[in-house]
């Protein structure tokens, strides 16, 4: 009757849909929270933000595994299936304009916005691929790959300040992600059977409004802060931090080949295909 592939998807539809629901929280949603709070350290200082990024990069080679295993693959799974699910619905919020029906529709709309936004955001900050020839000839000329982890605040600031449209796009994109996550928490609790009665669902709603508001404030203030960063001064602070880290052997020369968008070309001889994601922080004898 039907092809083997479609019957596999059909037979495991329940499990796949539940995995889709789960990945929205773990790891994708949880990662987003960490990401948003890390960004918000810029509200304190350039130093704190830079140190947070150093902290993430102490994972060394494992970072790429973490990135793919816990971020990209689950995210792609959630996003691609989500797109397929959107097309299986027929939103009708104008005919039946109830609050929860609007939220159903918005959940799908924000999902699509989040999909497009994250796709662009990963390009804008990281250029999608770490291969140097790609970054050099494609990503950077197109305005991508602007972030450099060892000059975190200054490059993020430059990226945010490159055109006035950028912070607007980030605001829309990030708010869509936050809504999608907070509302997703609420629907997830119904799907899995955590809150069943209308009263319980109402209380759970306060939880998701709270989470959404908090994340909204955290992320918007971080965006505002990045648009205000004095990138020149931040760059100097970062150079200073780097010198100290080099002296103490916490990072090595090799990792610094992506210093910033402007001077990356001078460090090209150090590049590997994995570029900035392969620091070896444990000792100074990496080379």
């Amino acid at each position: 009757m039907s092809s083997a592939q479609s019957s596999f998807l059909a037979r495991h539809e329940f499990l796949i849909r539940r995995l889709h629901s789960l990945t929205g929280l773990l790891p994708v949603g949880a990662y987003m929270c960490v990401h948003l709070f890390t960004n918000a350290t810029i509200l304190d200082s350039v130093q704190l933000f830079q140190n947070a990024i150093y902290g993430i990069h102490t994972l060394g080679d494992a970072l790429i595994l973490v990135e793919w295993g816990f971020i990209f693959l689950p995210l792609i799974f959630h996003a691609v299936l989500g797109m397929a699910y959107v097309s299986g619905g027929l939103p009708n919020p104008t005919a039946y304009s109830y609050g929860s029906n609007w939220r159903y529709t918005l959940q799908r709309a924000t999902g699509i916005i989040a999909f497009l936004f994250i796709f662009w955001h990963v390009f804008h900050m990281h250029g999608w691929f770490h291969a140097e020839w790609w970054l050099e000839n494609v990503a950077r000329p197109l305005g991508g790959a602007m972030f450099s982890p060892y000059n975190a605040a200054s490059t993020a600031g430059k990226a945010m300040q490159s055109t006035p449209i950028v912070p607007i796009l980030y605001t829309i994109g990030v708010l869509a992600c936050v809504f999608h996550f907070a509302n997703g928490l609420w629907t997830m609790g119904i799907t899995w059977g955590l809150w069943t009665t209308p009263q319980a669902q109402k209380r759970a709603n306060f939880l998701s409004i709270g989470v959404g508001t908090l994340l909204g404030i955290v992320s918007l203030s971080a965006i505002a802060a990045f648009t205000q960063v004095d990138t020149k001064k931040a760059g100097e602070i970062e150079e200073h931090l780097q010198e100290k880290r080099l002296e103490s052997g916490f990072i090595n020369e090799k990792q610094l080949h992506h210093k910033s968008v402007d001077d990356h070309s001078t460090d090209q001889e150090n590049s590997t295909s994995k570029g900035d994601e392969t620091p070896k922080p444990q000792n100074g004898s990496g080379t």
Partner: peptide, 27 residues
């Protein structure tokens, strides 16, 4: 698993059956 929690069902049911409670319990 296809339910998307729009909760229109419970809003329009003429018998005011607590459908979304049923859906969560069945979930």
């Amino acid at each position: 698993q296809i339910c998307g929690n729009a909760q229109n069902c419970v809003a329009v049911c003429p018998k005011e059956i607590p459908l979304t409670t049923s859906i969560a319990k069945a979930g």
